[in-house]
Design a binder for these strands. Structure first.
Lengths: 110, 110
DNA sequence: CTAACCTACAACCAAATGGTTGTAGATCAG
DNA sequence: CTGATCTACAACCATTTGGTTGTAGGTTAG
């Protein structure tokens, strides 16, 4: 099996993490530059604590890292985690394409 | 913006739909063949109604279709929806790679 | 030192999720 | 026709989620 049991929890966290537009936006932002948590919080119409939670979700999914710098906490893209995410999504897509193409062939033959 | 506002809801539903291992498994199964809802339900250690709900989530995310055949409801892969999902995931991956690579370059230069 | 700022964390709340059971309507087999 | 099967749907429940406010501690600026 391409997608084995070991990856299941990883996929759960990954898809879960991306299943929120604020979190997707945070990922987008931090892949382009650095942001403190409060810097991120300023961007959205919600409380600091809410953004803090979103960052925590992304951190648990290994998509971002936090690093203390003075009184601020700097949020950065976790490149390793993002590459891994990319790999997992690639595997998933590849699986579909194989199967979907195979079905298409079967339908064409029939 | 590559990922515009129109896609946000779509992405929400897509990632949400994939954020459950049972649903991912259902997608995997129906891309390889046909299953009635009860046929699917027999595969998992949960009630028929639970599986019915999972199928409903996948249907709302345009990943599968249901078609009545006699007293059964046949669940099939929604090829169009899956291709669209693939496209969206590709866009997302591409965005990361661009940004992550750009950051890598900046770091290498610095 | 003091005040402002950034963060962590707890407590709380409403709504969504993932599951259950139960009921009722179609459809098929005998 | 009758009984078994497949489905739809409602009601309910526990947990998670996405949000809030409030409190407290560390850090920086003046």
């Amino acid at each position: 099996m391409v997608v084995d049991q070991l990856h299941e929890t990883e996929l759960d966290r990954l898809f879960q993490a991306f299943a929120d537009s604020t979190r997707r936006d945070i990922v987008r932002r931090v892949t382009v530059g650095e942001f403190s948590v409060s810097g991120l919080a300023a961007l959205y119409a919600m409380s600091f604590a809410a953004v803090q939670k979103h960052v925590a979700v992304l951190e648990r999914a290994s998509l971002v890292t936090k690093e203390k710098r003075g009184r601020e906490q700097i949020v950065r893209a976790n490149h390793e985690g993002l590459q891994n995410a990319r790999r997992l999504l690639d595997e998933y897509e590849h699986m579909w394409c194989q199967r979907v193409d195979r079905m298409a062939d079967i339908l064409a033959e029939g």
